[in-house]
Amino acid sequence: MNHQPAHIIVVKGGWLTTVQDLGRYGYQHYGVPISGAMDSFSTRVANRLVGNSDCAAILELTLKGPELKFEQDAIVAITGADLSPAINGNSIPLWESIAIQRGSLLSFGAQRAGSRAYLAIAGGIDVPLVLGSRSTHCASQTGGLQGRPLKPGDILSGGEPGRSVNHLIGKRLSDRLLPPYRRPATLRVIPGPQRNLFSDTSLATLTEATYSVSPQSDRMGYRLTGPKVAGEGSMRFISDGTTMGALQVPPDGQPILLMADRQTTGGYPKIAVVISADLPLAAQLSPGDTVTFAPCTIAQALTVLRKHHAQLDQALPPRDTSFPSQ
């Protein structure tokens, strides 16, 4: 196959398909959200399967995938949620490098597991760097393809693929490294910076109850419904820095799990924070899904994260330094 930079026509945009990478770091002090792929694990795997660097731009597909017409031969990999991908109507596997011939139509069907799928193309997706990243932040119309989701008629250009990518065809991630998308999902949490504003009973409630992801959930955050987590006193709190995975508690006692598009600062106290290693699992939740939170220490969180990275590096070595590591 002769791999030119990809040239892809968007036939259908899907429910919410955006260009993302590992996030827009370095501008949070100007109020610029990190954004980036919700699921960094699936993003890394997809990129490594097609010979890209970890920080190459990919497409993030949500619940209902797009229809894409390939005008050139390409090598792709789809990871994360199973949204029933097919080439010219024939199902294709996830977590594997696949050759697509020019003229083919890549489409998606039923959502079978998870919520967000990641499509990497050898050479990456060529959109301009905005403040150091190709990630789309729709709320501020920043980055990606004109700061918005894909729509019919859009044309995506790829970057130049690595010199030789043909040998990658058929490469796949070992089954034992596939993330479990079971429900309820279990996410491990570290006590948050304002843990002291909450009673021990509240922290126990958070880690013993089952919460469900409400319909008011998006890339910014998930509103959870379940037993109330009550704060002590007035809960008046001066806005400070937020992070992906923070569980903030507004006055109604229903926690909000902050995700990739979160604002850089927030005024609700944070009772706990989901560990980095479990954020890719959080990324695969959507409205109606259930979730539980298990207590964890920072030391345990780092041990798990190091193990995940070591396993992935062994199975699929990075093309260059994987930065940032979260």
């Binding site: 770091y25 949070q28 002090h29 001066i238 806005s239 400070d240 820095g241 992070t243 850089t264 600062t265 980095s276 969180a301 780092l302 994260l305 190091r306 990275h309 930065f323 940032p324 590591s325 979260q326």
Partner: peptide, 14 residues
């Protein structure tokens, strides 16, 4: 990231 009365430092945990 400086805020009203605090600074948040984001680091690569590896």
């Amino acid at each position: 990231v400086p805020t009203y009365r605090s600074v948040t430092v984001f680091f690569d945990p590896l």
